[in-house]
Design a protein around this nucleic acid. Structure first.
Length: 469
RNA sequence: GUCCCCAUCGUCUAGUCGGCCCAGGACAACGGCCUUUCACGCCGUCAACAGCGGUUCAAAUCCGCUUGGGGACGCCA
C-alpha cells in the first residue's frame, strides 16, 4: 500500500462539533494506522462567516482530543493563486469556459428544469460562446456530454451517477475566488491526499470533484462517506437537538480519550469490543468495518465510557485533571495529598470530572458548613442514633486516625455491644457526609482527621437532641 | 420535483462471499448477589432482522417492489 495521506478540513465558522470531531478521528486513525500523514486544512474561503477565533477553537479542541496533525495547517485563503493556475489550465485545455449569465438568468433555467420534473441546473448557455475574461464573468467546468461517474466508496460501496444529472458548475466566481469544489480538488491533489473520509453530505459533491480530477488529468483519491450523527430522537443533530461542541464536553469534565473512544465506536466497530486504548484504536482502525447507516448519539453511553476511563486511568493523572474542576466548584486549591485519597474514594462513583469534584464537597467543607439531607437526618438522627454517636465520639477521641485503626475501633464497638453494623453505620454516615452516601466510613474518617470527625459528631449529636423521636 | 444514500433490540452494534442465528455483545431498563450507604463488580431478565414478493434444499444475509428515514440539487462550505 502506498503512503497514506488523510486530512481534516473544517470551515472556521463555528467550534468543532461532534460530527466534525468524528470525521477528524477517523482520518487521524487511518493515517496513524498506516504510518501515514494527517493534515489539517482550514477552509476559510467564506470570508463573511470565517473567524480566527473559531480556527483557534478548533485547533484547541483537536489538541485536547489528542489528534495531532503533521505539518502546519493550510489556509485556503492564502492559496488563491494556486487555484487560479488550475483554473487557467482548465480554460486552456478547453475543459472550462467563461460565463456571463446573471444569477437571475441561472435561476430561471433552474426553475424551468424544475417545472419539467428534472433536476434544477444550469443549461450550458455560454458553453460554446467563446467568451473571454471580463467583469461579472465566472468560469464553469465543461462536463462530458454523457456517461456515468462511478466510484467505490469506502463505507457505502459502489456509487454511480449519470453525468446528465450534473451541470456545468462554477469553478471560479466572478470575483476571482475559486468555488469550494475547485479549491478542494486542487488542495487534495496538491497535498497528496490518498484517502478522504468526510461527511455523508458530500456524496453528491464527489462526482463533481471526480469530473474535475479527470478534466485536470489527476489521480482520484479514495473516498469514504460516513453518515451523519443523529440526536437521541433520531433527528439531525442541530443546536436544537443537543448538538454540542467538543469544547463543551471539555467543560463538562469529559475525558478526551472517552470521547474519542465513543466517537470512533459510532459508525465503526471491531467485533464486540467497546472500550479501546488509543493504541488499540490505531491498531484496529484500517478504514474497514465502517457502518453505512446513520447513528444516534447517546450521551448515556458516553457517560458510561467516560466513567470507565476515570476508573482506569493512573491516579496521579486523575488528580491533575480534577484539580481545576475542584477549584471551579469553589472547593479551593486542594493539594495533591488531599486530592489523592478523595479520588480513590470517589472515582468509581462519578462519571465525569465535574461530578467527581462535586462529590468531594461534603468532605472538604467544614463541619459547620456541611449540609444534611432532610430525608436522612429524619431517618437516622434518632434517639438511638444519638446513643451511638455519643459512644463513638468517646471512643474516637482515643483512636489512631488511620483507616486500619478506625475500622478496628468501629468493629469493636459493634461487637462489644452486641450490635449490628446496620444500626451504627447510618447515623454515623449521615453525621459525617450529611447523607447516606460516600465511601467506607473508616476511609472517610481517616481523611477527615480526628478533629474534624469529632466536630461533625458533635454537631450531629446536637441535631439529634433537637429531634422529637 | 429530480438524483443519491440508508434500514438488526429503546440506543451503539456483531452477523467472514446464505446454512453453526427461533440472531451475539455493549449502554439503558428491570431483578438478584456482594455490602454499613452509594457506587464498582458479578449473575440473570426484558428486547430487534421495517413490510411484501421472489431466488434457493436453506435468507437477517442475494434480487425486486413498497414504506419509512436522511442527504444533495448555490458565483455556501
Amino acid at each position: 500500500m502506498p503512503r497514506v495521506v488523510t486530512r481534516f478540513a473544517p470551515s472556521p465558522t463555528g467550534h468543532l462539533h461532534l460530527g466534525g470531531a468524528r470525521t477528524a478521528v477517523f482520518n487521524w486513525l487511518l493515517a496513524r494506522h498506516f504510518g501515514g500523514t494527517f493534515c489539517l486544512r482550514i477552509e476559510d474561503t467564506d470570508l463573511l462567516r470565517s473567524k480566527q477565533e473559531y480556527t483557534d477553537s478548533i485547533l484547541a479542541s483537536m489538541r485536547w482530543l489528542g489528534l495531532d496533525w503533521d505539518g502546519e495547517p493550510i489556509y485556503q485563503t492564502q492559496r488563491t493563486d494556486l487555484y487560479n493556475a488550475y483554473v487557467e489550465r482548465l480554460l486552456q485545455s478547453g475543459h472550462a469556459y467563461y460565463c456571463d449569465c446573471t444569477p437571475e438568468q441561472v435561476e430561471a433555467m433552474r426553475e424551468k428544469a424544475r417545472k419539467l420534473g428534472e433536476k434544477p441546473r444550469y443549461d450550458g448557455h455560454c458553453r460554446e460562446r467563446g467568451l473571454g475574461p471580463g467583469p461579472g464573468r465566472c468560469v464553469r467546468l465543461k462536463l462530458p456530454a454523457s456517461g456515468r461517474v462511478a466510484f467505490d466508496d469506502m463505507v457505502k460501496g459502489p456509487i454511480a451517477v449519470d453525468i446528465a444529472e450534473l451541470d456545468d458548475m462554477v469553478i471560479r466566481r466572478a470575483d476571482g475566488m475559486p468555488t469550494y469544489n475547485m479549491a478542494v480538488v486542487v488542495d487534495d491533489h496538491e497535498m497528496g491526499l490518498t484517502h478522504i473520509i468526510r461527511g455523508d453530505d458530500h456524496v453528491s459533491n464527489t462526482p463533481k470533484q471526480i469530473l474535475l480530477y479527470e478534466a485536470l488529468g489527476l489521480a482520484v483519491p479514495k473516498f469514504g462517506h460516513v453518515p451523519m450523527i443523529l440526536g437521541k430522537d433520531k433527528q439531525k443533530l442541530s443546536k436544537r437537538h443537543g448538538a454540542k461542541a467538543v469544547i463543551e464536553y471539555e467543560k463538562d469534565g469529559l475525558l478526551p480519550q472517552a470521547l474519542v473512544n465513543y466517537l470512533a465506536r459510532l459508525g465503526w466497530s471491531h467485533g464486540d469490543q467497546e472500550l479501546f486504548s488509543m493504541e488499540e484504536l490505531i491498531r484496529y482502525f484500517d478504514g474497514t468495518n465502517l457502518n453505512p447507516s446513520a447513528a444516534c448519539f447517546d450521551d448515556v453511553k458516553l457517560a458510561w465510557c467516560n466513567a470507565h476511563f476515570m476508573r482506569e486511568m493512573p491516579l496521579e493523572k486523575l488528580c491533575d485533571l480534577v484539580h481545576p474542576f475542584v477549584q471551579q466548584a469553589g472547593l479551593g486549591d486542594l493539594a495533591n495529598e488531599r486530592l489523592r485519597p478523595l479520588c480513590v474514594m470517589f472515582r468509581e462513583r462519578a462519571s465525569d470530572l465535574v461530578g467527581l469534584a462535586e462529590s468531594f464537597r461534603p468532605l472538604v467543607v467544614s463541619a459547620e458548613a456541611l449540609s444534611y439531607t432532610e430525608k436522612d437526618t429524619k431517618k437516622h438522627f434518632t434517639k438511638a442514633g444519638a446513643v451511638h454517636l455519643h459512644a463513638l465520639a468517646a471512643i474516637l477521641a482515643n483512636t489512631d486516625f488511620t483507616a486500619e485503626a478506625l475500622e478496628a475501633a468501629l468493629n469493636a464497638y459493634v461487637a462489644d455491644n452486641g450490635l449490628r453494623f446496620k444500626e451504627v453505620a447510618p447515623p454515623l454516615r449521615t453525621a459525617l457526609m450529611g447523607f447516606m452516601g460516600g465511601s467506607h466510613l473508616n476511609e472517610i474518617m481517616a481523611f477527615l482527621g480526628q478533629k474534624e470527625t469529632l466536630a461533625r459528631l458533635e454537631r450531629a449529636c446536637a441535631l439529634c437532641e433537637a429531634c422529637p423521636e
